[in-house]
Design a protein around this nucleic acid. Structure first.
Lengths: 340, 340
DNA sequence: GTGAAAGCGCTAACAT
DNA sequence: ATGTTAGCGCTTTCAC
């Protein structure tokens, strides 16, 4: 079998304690001994066993990642990308990320994620909106928490958020810069903080440019920001028979639905109506025309979440506990100058 | 702190051994005692600690998932989907999946994935093509292996493969059923087994329908089956100035590139040329027209890989060690009857 | 500066 | 049918 700490100790003629101290690069070991032990470790190709280390130090070396089933199975791999970011950064910090999904309606009758019950994670990252009950149950266990793309109404937690307001502003300003002034806003689930912040950005941009806000240009009564609801929203909007030269959809999924409707009505994008989305999902590139959008740095959000978490786990919280991720305007072909 | 096995033993007036045996539902414990102990476990909200259990039983409760960096960062989330499948199924089997990436050129000079060195996984799933050196190094450690979407030239391993041949056959037969007989085949990296199997399927379908194979209809000299190479291939194909009524692209990424080229040349899909892809990636739905393709059950492949692995880990290898995943023709709007 | 030894929480062989 | 006990491989206090 593989070498244990005992084998190393024996071979190097020291105690297991010394080997352990060398591994952790402790001060009080002479550099002579360190050299000798390190050589032996290398010779024997010794690596401390994770479970043994975890048992005594109470540190599993794992970080939990929780997302609701709904969010995770959504076709746009938004949270999947965030998860990939955590995997990526966790490697740097010598952690592993254990992913699990929970029911959106999680309450005290549900079983807690297994990695929490088994004390198999040192901290938990919550991605997207989760139930208050889950949050409280984890909090009770005193497991460090980091939120990503959601912030609970009460409590004061470290969090990685998207700068949705700036995104809404940028998207709208881009359309205004293209001389549009009849700009519609389309959204689903307006009660979600991220969506409503985008809406605020939209309104702020209008305001800054002295363009009056027209409620007739707003369709925000669909339940969820998904493709089919984008389609419905566009339909509702155009049934109003008002002048519209550009549409800001609150996310790419809805924008895809909007585009589909416009195509069916033979309305040309961008010449008849400019269209901008939000998120920058993979599918945008294969759209016709490719969608102008606001890029959300999904992978980077995962990276930041792990950075926050590791700082918390190491007890050195040097950085701010709230991270606001910048977004970027990606101009493709679904927006153009408004022709008068 | 949380309850340990000792607390349960004390409270239930039994030994820790008994508690342990009850947890594992051992025969020789009276149902009376079982009831009593189980109640205490519930009362104390006791859950065995993973690391402790792992240390003594030499079972970490984790399964490793290895994919090359290249494969993982590819824009189409093919392996990501497979990984999600493993996560999904692992939950059922009470395992966690630890993901890591390796360099495609992995050789003995590289460090082995940390979860292997730390003995933190009971088995390893290898997704996609990985270097022979990595395989051999893992094999040396006698860690159970399961391959997904790749099979090494030597050795005899459990594997989950796509039925690429059947897929190539189905795609081509679909076009033939639509009365096409000038069907082009476009591919990149034809040396990859999966791609060449699709090509075999294509040829077989022609053969079965007494359609002569015409090398002029084949473009397989691009290095990699990606969007831009699909574009290039279509260009090459049409420069030959031969009759083509349908194109079978070896995967969706290339099909997207093909479509882009056809659009630029104002060639209508499907009326002028029918187009079919392979894989069924998310982006297909937002294409115009939505792409007819052959669906590869990516999530299901992950599920099957974990099933295989758990069977191996439990020493009951009842099922076949080689799983061939069926593919499915998904007819959307990029193919239609050939008009003469 | 280094070693001896206790013990993390659990499983399993052996005793009763 | 149940209890006692010896570790699993490691970290960490406390002696020396």
């Amino acid at each position: 079998m593989t070498a244990t700490i005992k084998d190393v100790a024996k071979k190097a003629n020291v105690s297991v304690a010394t080997v352990s101290l060398v591994i952790h690069n402790h001060q009080r070991i002479s550099s002579e001994t360190k050299r000798k032990v390190r050589k032996t470790i290398k010779d024997l190709n010794y690596h401390p066993v994770r479970t043994a280390r975890g048992l005594v130090s109470q540190k599993s070396g794992n970080i939990g990642f929780i997302v609701t089933e709904d969010h995770f199975s959504r076709s746009e791999p938004f949270y999947t990308q965030i998860f990939l970011g955590t995997e990526f950064q966790a490697r740097e910090s010598e952690y592993y990320v254990l992913l699990t999904t929970v029911n959106s309606d999680f309450n005290s009758n549900f079983k807690m994620p297994r990695f929490i019950l088994e004390r198999n994670v040192e901290g938990v990252i919550l991605a997207g909106k989760v139930s208050q009950s889950l949050i409280e149950n984890i909090k009770k266990l005193e497991i460090p928490l980091v939120f990503v793309d959601y912030y609970p109404p009460q409590g004061n937690y470290p969090v990685v958020m998207i700068d949705n307001f700036a995104g809404g502003l940028k998207a709208t300003q881009h359309l205004i810069d293209c001389h549009h002034n009849r700009i519609a806003f389309i959204a689903g689930d307006i009660s979600h903080p991220s969506i409503s912040e985008r809406f605020q950005g939209y309104k702020m941009a209008l305001d800054r440019n002295q363009i009056p806000f027209d409620p007739n240009l707003v369709v925000i009564d669909e339940p969820y920001p998904a493709r089919e609801f984008g389609y419905n929203s566009a339909k509702k909007l155009l049934q109003r028979n008002i002048s519209v030269t550009a549409i800001f959809a609150c996310n790419d999924a809805m924008a895809i639905g909007v585009l589909q409707f416009l195509k069916e009505k033979n309305i040309k994008v961008p010449t008849d109506i400019s269209l901008i989305g939000f998120d920058d999902v993979e599918a945008n590139l294969s759209m016709d025309p490719p969608l102008t959008t606001v890029r959300v740095p999904k992978v980077e959000m995962g990276i930041e979440a792990i950075k926050l978490m590791t700082e918390i786990l190491c007890q050195r919280q040097t950085r701010s506990r709230k991270i606001l991720m910048p977004v970027e305007l990606i101009v493709r072909c679904s927006t153009c100058e408004h022709q008068n």
